[in-house]
Design a protein around this nucleic acid. Structure first.
Lengths: 157, 157
DNA sequence: CTGGGTGCAAAGTGTTTGCACGTTG
DNA sequence: CAACGTGCAAACACTTTGCACCCAG
């Protein structure tokens, strides 16, 4: 936890509190903990993961899973968090404080690698324009087998 | 329904029947109707849409929604159909007889436009390699507002 | 002290499964 | 006539909602 990171967190927190104030919402312990957990653990949480994680780390708080869902939805709607969806397998959330990026997902072990490619982004913009769309967002996920799984699966098949 | 299309359908059907035979599965009226419906209606069906559509068009058949799900899963697993998923909003299926393509989706009216871009595809391959992944597939969806919705929404906001 | 927030449990989704019966090969 | 497929309803997993109490502002 470098100071720089804490600074980042502070500004994130301010942004969150502002958002709450502007919508007559309240800054609660639960909301704080969800934000902090997402921030401190640079990973992709399912609602359930996050719930279990928080339940273990803050037993006193006695959070309910409903609150996790409510908070994640709030964070996503206000652009503080984003989610990637895995078909019927659910959704995973992460903070949206990093620059835009997409995901490379291992079908075998679930490893998620983030990447960014501006050339693809501009192509996408081009495609949207060509079809008369005003682009508002996109979702791109590449599926494959990561290095580790490739080697451990050589024996089989 | 041009003759060419019927020829296409015939070969699709043969492929499907082969698949069934190879797996000791049976060619039933229900499976036939699902395949035919997907073929004749070049659109993206949710399981429920497809169920209602078939129920209306073939009332005699008295299909159950479970069969629709079972058949769609079968078709997808065997590569005859593909699906695009909309997060918690479910999945839509289409036949996989056209060349690979991705989707441009209107967030407003749900319009889906298909497109193909080989430059993006090769970039994706490149990204996967750079990260040590063996690419097996991808999903790319662009979200935006289509021409129609852009003009009809000018009044509001 | 007022209005939004929370936990809980119940209700909703969309999808899958167990079962007895029907159909295919 | 054996084995798979089907419709139905129940079961499921994930998410949302109603409610009584709680807490932030």
């Amino acid at each position: 936890m470098a100071d720089i990171e804490n600074m980042e967190y502070d500004s994130l927190l301010i942004r969150f509190k502002d958002l709450l104030k502007h919508n007559n919402l309240k800054y609660t312990k639960q909301r704080e903990v969800v934000l902090k957990t997402l921030y401190n653990n640079h990973q992709h949480f399912t609602p359930e993961n996050l719930y279990l994680f928080i339940k273990e780390k803050y037993p006193k708080l006695n959070v309910g899973i409903a609150t996790i869902y409510r908070t994640l939805n709030l964070l996503e709607e206000s652009g503080i968090a984003t989610s990637i969806s895995f078909g019927s397998a659910g959704k995973k959330f992460e903070l949206a404080n990093k620059p835009h990026h997409d995901h490379l997902i291992c079908k075998c072990c679930g490893l998620i690698v983030e990447f960014e490619n501006s050339q693809i982004e501009s192509k996408q913009e081009e495609i949207a324009q060509k079809n008369g769309f005003k682009l508002t967002g996109h979702m791109m996920q590449l599926y494959g087998i990561c290095t580790t799984c490739q080697s451990s699966n050589e024996a089989s098949s």
